[in-house]
Nucleic acid binder design. Structure first.
Lengths: 306, 306
DNA sequence: CTGAAAGCGCTAACAG
DNA sequence: CTGTTAGCGCTTTCAG
């Protein structure tokens, strides 16, 4: 049935006829046990209801399905303990490999992954060391480029609105990169508003900008931890007749589909999310031994909001 | 280890110590083979990069993970043949049950699902017959309510902008319900613009409205196949100084998070997406024999665009 | 090219 | 409560 091995055409035909007649469904559980190697790939992400992960997943699942692999997906909800449970649980399905978002894991998780003896692909972040394959782009660098862009445009009284960077470590790295450029130029952030929510949302952006402008009316540009927040802020400006970018410039991160369709396309950084998933999956399937880091970069979108 | 069966505490302690020492990971593939019943649930959706599915998945995965189940997810990309391949493939993992989006499947797929002898939960649509569990809300009724709402507001020259309803059958059902109310009142649609794309997008909405208004300038309200399109149209109006809802009213479908955060919250219908996933998963796990349909309803959001 | 047989690592059932 | 054993449905290997 798997068209592999040696046999005559007549036998093959008979087998195929029989499977048809009995509507036989092969049992991959048994197959997996016998062959030790399953056509299953584990995927661990923080959350699925989020603008970034679905794109990454789509890319990965696409490549995986094309190669006859099935993905078994789990969400940690940003909880490191949950991540450990999940990894353990997924590993017990003896997947052919494991894709996991980010480079920041507990010691236990790192140990588990290392001992799994299957390719591990860490996605979306390349700013730190990985287990074996690392695919994504630099958040530190994205933060730096964003700062350089705003400074080049002449903004000097810059504020920051973000969601919880203690939970979203990648947003934290962008912030770090952003601030370090300012510091190198002898400038400091005028003010910041960091929400408590672990996840970015449009509503939080609206509220965050309102609070920031209230406390620091002199701000002339705002860097957001994500497009969601920046979009909310943009809507806030629209409603309150705050002229963008004259009164205040806005800069986001992600390059979501929506951001270039609002009346003034958002200035932001676009990441190759789908590609990250695809490349990650491909790396995992072609089991070359050599661990490596693949920097897929990002694109700065000038937009009309800064 | 599974804390089930009878044994002494001392033995349990020894076993636990040993598993720790050897960092033993149980092999669920072997377990599944032996026990015939796996802790795996299959999920089949048309696409993952879409505003609706991630919410449904999040709800389902949440319940599933809480109960020690893992989900194995596949995307059909709206291709019925791909759906069949996927269902076959997932079934060969002998899952405890299968959740699948929609009620529209090929004859083959229906046969496969029926013969699988595991609970099948069909999600998001209740307008037709299902295999055994059906969880969602009525699209026909959503279309009807939308039409009634617009008529009650006094709009009489109504247009429609949609994506490919031959592919997105649920959008087709809404359209049907919408038009049938108009017909009952002796009104007919002024004009429609149906894009070729199978998936709704903000950009398509912008373009669709532009074309529709060009061809039928007399239109006073537009019903969209989804919020994405309606949002794009709203942005188009903002840019072109078309006053909403005075010049043209807009009405969407889905109730996405973004829609109530734009300057004028969108008039739309909000569906309980996450809940649909949760209820579906729960139904699948508690294996009551009785097939049934669960109507989770929807909420009409008045908004400010009509 | 074909047929037979030995497991894969568990679970479940049963005898002590 | 404990120990033993017979498979689960395949893949792989090896002998014809």
């Amino acid at each position: 049935m798997r068209n592999h091995g040696s046999f005559s055409e007549s036998v093959r035909a008979k087998v195929l006829a029989a499977t048809e007649a009995l509507d036989y469904t092969p049992n991959r559980i048994a197959g997996g046990l016998a062959s030790v190697t399953s056509r299953l790939v584990g995927i661990v992400i923080p959350s699925i209801s989020n603008a970034v992960m679905p794109d990454v997943l789509a890319g990965a699942m696409n490549v995986l399905e094309e190669n006859g692999f099935q993905s078994i997906i789990g969400a940690t909800n940003f909880d490191p303990l949950q991540e450990e449970k999940l990894v353990r649980s997924i590993l017990s399905w003896r997947p052919r490999g494991l894709m996991i978002a980010g480079l920041d894991h507990t010691k236990n998780v790192r140990a588990l992954l290392r001992k799994a003896h299957v390719p591990i692909v860490e996605l979306l972040d390349i700013d730190d060391g990985g287990i074996d394959f690392v695919v994504g782009s630099s958040h530190r660098m994205a933060g730096r480029k964003s700062a350089e862009f705003l400074l080049a445009r002449g903004y000097l009284r810059i504020g920051y609105v973000g969601h919880n960077i203690l939970v979203d470590l990648r947003a934290g790295r962008r912030f770090e990169g952003f601030v370090s450029v300012l510091k190198e130029r002898g400038i400091s952030l005028v003010g910041e508003d960091i929400g408590a929510h672990p996840v970015s949302s449009v509503e939080a952006g609206r509220e965050g900008l309102a609070r920031l402008l209230h406390r620091f009316p002199e701000v002339d540009a705002v860097y957001f931890s994500s497009d969601n927040l920046a979009m909310g802020a943009y809507f806030y400006c629209l409603e309150n007749k705050i002229s963008v970018p004259r009164d205040v410039a806005l800069f986001g991160y992600n390059g979501l589909a929506l951001t270039d369709l609002i009346p003034q396309p958002l200035s932001t950084i676009r990441t190759p999310r789908r590609l990250i998933g695809e490349v990650g999956a491909r790396l995992l399937l072609q089991d070359t031994e050599t661990a490596k880091v693949v920097d897929l970069g990002f694109e700065l979108i000038e937009g009309k909001t800064s």
